[in-house]
Write a protein that binds this DNA or RNA. Structure first.
Lengths: 334, 334
DNA sequence: CTGAAAGCGCTTACAG
DNA sequence: CTGAAAGCGCTTACAG
């Protein structure tokens, strides 16, 4: 397919008048090579427009320079800019360290899927997981010695490196703010409660109640799944059982928008009668009317932290779980 | 790092009582192997939990099984779900064909950047480009024989495979609809006019005027850059010069939202006084009030088409540029 | 239908 | 500081 065949070490070595071993050393910044000969090699490389064959390099060295980013879900998750954004953060850090990102989006369910096979085929130096629904594959790969990073808190307690947003703190801040604004009856619309993030956000909400010595009335805790539709449906149900609700903390912006839509359709004004806070501080929060107050998580930083944890592991450095802070961004809705 | 070393052909061959060549044939579905011996090989593979080393395979065969998806922009583009979604479409098709997606997000500017080096290092079997700002790298790689697909229409006319949305048709339909609804003065807020997509959408808008025998008044064509901010700023400017504007076609939903925000802030009702149509039919279109009428492009299909074009090329099949249709989704705003 | 052997293009102890 | 040589784990003409 390729019109002209690319040069190899053998021709570089010949034109520089050194051995292939020396060429390899120079190209891998081995300091021990004499500067003069190193220079000759570099000149030959330049002159011939040489590019190292990374596949051959990978086979010989055992390092592929590839890191897998595995999103344990189907492709529809990309409708949420979260994954694209976090992946871009990962990609940037890896690229700065000479590594490439291999993207795999697929439900990881079993140990026998194509993702599992790929990760075990030695084609990547490490793997970063998102939206993990189960820890089985991770535990297996960990045993095999593959460097791993999980984004989000792992389900089981293991010694796998992970990075996460302070979900508990963000939810706590949001709920606390609603109460400080005078809300007497604050509901929560949770995310998919099968994920640790959704659980942590619920915990943050409950903690505020705990501190006030109260318990949220039955029906104030609405289990959603992060979709616009559940935001709407649960708000309708909520209004039926608790017409006097005056604050809603939705665990993402989409559900918050669903809540606002239903409230406004009923002629209930936001924030005058019901205050609403979302989570993510996404584009939607800025374009909505009233603009949506929301808990901002730094998604790019999350990706970068995941990338950095991976680099640290590859370098055999120590590493600690990273928990990134959140920030309450106040707009019109609360 | 790996606790136990993985089996190779040599051990498979031994336990199956065949040669390594036969193992290779079976694992590459070479039909010529006798069924009995093939069965023995498969059993050995199963028993030993063998996974082929794809790096070694790549070096020997010259095929890496990796396709690069190159997004010629900085990471901020991922705030727009478009790229994540289209990438996921690509990824799905490639995965079904046993290929993996390597994601590279970086301004491709020069021929000497890390992306260029990577693509020339033989580590991928092909490359799919998005948001290309220039054709130089593509032309160079094409010359080297690397299979290529461009998403969006290329700047220069070359024989590179490409897939695109029918930008012209979508813009034409949107503008036509506004006029059919009685709009007398329709403005356009364009995207970054340096991209071919933005130019094509502008052309579609102009074509409608052409057919009616009119020319859009000066100031009705507002050059934006796809951001919420330019949507707002340009609408303000537009209202200053053309207070009687009664239709706005914004070349993406974000700018359309900017327009609606400004209109409503001025007490101008949408769609009663000014009708607005966006482009993309994104999440925002559904959550806005009034819900935004928008031109839908099937982003997943776009990615899948790009993936399929790549597969066709790798198989040496013929291929034609693919132009995907758009659809006007009517909601409340127009 | 099958095997022995050369080869893909690098890396890395080893010996000097 | 440097080179000869073995090796990474597959694939593929070639000969039978």
């Amino acid at each position: 397919m390729a019109p002209k065949t690319r040069p190899t070490y053998s021709v570089i070595a010949k034109t520089a008048g050194v051995s292939e071993a020396t060429v390899s050393r120079v190209l891998n910044q081995d300091e021990s090579v004499h500067p003069d000969r190193a220079k000759r090699v570099l000149e030959a490389v330049e002159k011939l427009g040489y590019k190292k064959n990374r596949v051959a390099s990978a086979l010989a060295s055992g390092r592929t320079g590839l890191i897998a980013v595995v999103i344990d879900d189907d492709l529809s998750v990309f409708a949420d800019p979260f994954y694209g954004t976090v992946t871009s953060g990962v990609s940037r850090v890896l690229m700065e360290n000479g590594l490439q990102t291999v993207l795999m989006v697929s439900p990881v369910g079993s140990l026998e899927g194509s993702v599992a096979h790929y990760l075990e085929s030695g084609e990547v130096d490490g793997a970063i997981f998102f939206a993990l629904h189960s820890d089985v594959l991770v535990n297996k790969l960990k045993k095999q010695g593959l460097p791993l990073v999980i984004t989000g808190t792992p389900h089981s307690t293991s010694d796998v490196a992970f990075v996460d947003t302070d979900n508990f703190g963000g939810a706590y801040t949001a709920t606390k703010h609603l109460i400080s604004q005078g809300c007497k009856k604050v509901a929560i619309i949770t995310g998919d409660i099968g994920t640790t993030a959704a659980k942590q956000r619920l915990d943050g909400y409950l903690q505020v109640y705990r501190e006030t010595g109260h318990v949220p009335a039955k029906g104030l805790i609405c289990e959603g799944d992060y979709s616009f539709e559940t935001g709407k449906a649960l708000t309708e149900k909520l209004l039926a059982t608790h017409p006097d609700v005056d604050g809603i903390f939705a665990c993402n912006d989409l559900m918050a928008m669903g809540a606002i839509t239903v409230l406004q359709d009923r002629g209930i004004s936001v924030p005058e009668q019901v205050r609403v806070i979302g989570f993510d501080d996404s584009m939607i929060a800025q374009t909505s009317r009233p603009a949506l107050s929301s808990i901002r998580q730094d998604v790019v930083a999350l990706g970068e932290a995941a990338g950095s944890l991976m680099i640290a592991q590859l370098n055999g450095e120590d590493f600690e779980p990273v928990i990134l802070p959140t920030e309450l961004v106040l707009r019109g809705s609360a």
